[in-house]
Amino acid sequence: MARRVPFDRSWRIRRAIIIGTILWCVGMVTYLSVWGRDSNLSETTVNGCLLLMASVIGSYVFGAVWDDRNRDQARWGGDYDQPYQREVYRERVAVPQKQDQTDPEPPPGFAE
């Protein structure tokens, strides 16, 4: 199974954007909770920041899975993803029938 390079350029940029967004949301929620006025605007802003944090984290996790899956499909081709395929198919095996118990004739040249 291929591993994602943790310090790949695109992932560093994504990680910086995500961490910046989460830190900004945490700062806003903390500021409005401690020093903000008790108003509908502050309450709505805190709810919006919490929802933004949840959506950013969810997008980051599922975006990484989607990116890995697309990379693996490009590497191996086909409609499925080889590391994630877990289905096992078995052939049907017929039970051998009992043969008669008579001693068969040996091949020519072996009975001498």
Rank of each mutant, 00 (worst) to 15 (best):
M1I: 08
M1P: 02
V5P: 02
V5F: 06
V5I: 13
V5Q: 04
P6M: 07
R9G: 03
R9Y: 11
S10W: 05
W11P: 00
R12F: 06
R12Q: 08
I13L: 10
R14L: 02
R14G: 01
R14Q: 11
R14A: 02
R14E: 04
R15F: 06
R15P: 00
I17K: 15
T21P: 03
T21K: 13
I22A: 07
C25A: 07
V26E: 07
V26W: 09
G27L: 02
G27I: 02
V29K: 00
T30P: 00
T30F: 05
T30W: 03
L32F: 04
L32T: 01
S33C: 10
G36R: 00
S39K: 04
S39L: 06
N40M: 11
L41G: 08
E43S: 12
T44H: 14
T45Y: 02
T45S: 13
V46G: 00
V46Y: 00
V46R: 01
N47I: 03
N47R: 07
G48V: 02
C49P: 00
C49V: 01
L52E: 01
L52T: 01
M53G: 02
S55W: 13
I57S: 13
G58Q: 11
G58W: 01
S59L: 13
S59V: 15
S59P: 03
Y60T: 09
V61N: 12
F62T: 14
W66K: 15
W66A: 06
W66P: 01
R69Y: 11
R69P: 00
R69E: 06
R71S: 15
R71M: 11
R71E: 05
D72A: 03
D72T: 10
D72I: 10
D72P: 01
A74S: 12
A74C: 08
R75K: 11
W76P: 01
G77L: 09
D79E: 15
D79M: 11
D79S: 13
D79Q: 11
Y80Q: 09
Y80H: 12
D81Q: 12
Q82Y: 09
Q85R: 04
Q85P: 01
R86W: 03
E87C: 07
V88E: 10
R90P: 00
R90D: 12
R92M: 09
R92G: 05
V93W: 04
A94C: 04
A94M: 07
V95Y: 07
P96M: 09
P96K: 09
K98L: 09
K98C: 04
K98Q: 07
K98T: 05
Q99V: 06
Q99N: 09
Q99M: 14
Q101M: 11
P104G: 12
P104K: 10
E105Y: 13
P106Q: 05
P107C: 03
P107W: 04
P108F: 05
G109A: 06
G109C: 08
E112D: 15
